[in-house]
Design a protein around this nucleic acid. Structure first.
Lengths: 194, 194
DNA sequence: CTGGATCTATACAGACCTGTCTGCTATAGT
DNA sequence: ACTATAGCAGACAGGTCTGTATAGATCCAG
């Protein structure tokens, strides 16, 4: 599956290496802080090759965002089927999984957005697309769960997810998984343990 | 009041202009994207003067964070006294006030943190200090409100505040004030309107 | 009245950045 | 066999960045 691009040819190996390297470096160090020179050096690729595949750095950044989005979709798809409520909890647990990774630096979508002030930039548009997709996933699960107000509750869950992503990075709470469960329970109105 | 620094002399006018200019430019454009040259140009200050007051750019960034923190404290202090629960809601409404500002670009603390990956940097430490202070404010209000678990609920409110700051910027919901009230109600367990 | 602090103006070093260009090689489809 | 695609290597232009240095003006306290 999916070693192919939109046309028939297989994806270029060099392009793949560039994208993988960029994903690692951007996530760890931020977008502006990582230069093209470093990316092509660590990817083992000539500069001309880079600019053959990407018209400018911003195109790489957009591809990086889309790569992250693809990864997020795959992570959720691989969760398997469960009841809607458990599904939501499993999705939120992915936040803890990410935070457990060494070198976790917070949500890369939020971080990238912070470096692109212009909301009409292609990078921000790619981020918007991902966020809209994720919101739709949550809403669908809430509908399945017979939630009385899925739109509004999806908003509240989005707030919770973003907040947990920020807190998991900046405050590094010891009991993150408990905090996640507690937060989801508060938003969905479940009885909270003492 | 308070035109004085730690020593007896009044705060330097040039330093004040630098800090005001930096606050405006950093908030709007990000930290890395705004250079020293632009700051001193718009502040109307010589470069030597800048480096007389700040040893390096990072010192200015730390001062910028502390300036923002001071502003946040002042904003909360100026709310006046009300019952604890209303106080919490008033604090959260400050998020909507900020989002209504033209050129709002999201929480400047979150944005600055995104540009400083190293948690031990002085910038991140200043951000940590501010976050800890804010958490304490919320906890104290929850104690006053006779909340059964003020620590855990302060965590949940912090999650809510950070999430609302992200969402108010990236999603720009039309009914932000309603979303804020709804979120706080869910976290504190109040009956939600249909 | 003298020395220190504050300030302006400007030039410069050295690093790093993005993006272009030239040359050359190898492979694969038509 | 020809040509388009993909790739490597490296130089280079032109800009921006931080931070330092030089040289002089102003003001105030001891």
């Amino acid at each position: 599956m999916s070693a192919a691009r939109t046309n028939g040819r297989p994806e270029s190996l060099a392009r793949r290496r560039i994208l993988d390297t960029a994903t690692a470096l951007f996530s760890l160090g931020g977008v502006r802080a990582v230069g093209i020179d470093r990316i092509i050096a660590e990817a083992g690729v000539a500069k001309a090759t880079f600019y053959h595949h990407f018209a400018a750095k911003d195109d790489l950044v957009r591809a990086y965002i889309e790569e992250l989005s693809k990864g997020g979709r795959a992570a959720i798809a691989s969760l398997g089927r469960r009841p809607a409520r458990q599904m939501i909890l499993a999705i939120f647990d992915l936040i803890a999984d990410a935070a457990d990774q060494p070198g976790y630096r917070g949500c890369p979508f939020q971080n990238a957005a912070a470096e692109y002030p212009d909301p009409s930039s292609s990078v921000r548009q790619a981020i918007d697309k991902h966020r809209h997709w994720k919101w739709g996933i949550l809403k669908d699960l809430l509908i399945t769960d017979a939630n009385p107000d899925p739109d509004r509750t999806a908003d509240a869950l989005t707030v919770a997810a973003d907040g947990l992503l920020v807190v998991s990075h900046l405050d590094r709470p010891a009991n993150l998984r408990t905090l996640i469960r507690d937060t989801v329970d508060r938003v969905l109105g479940a009885p909270r343990p003492v």
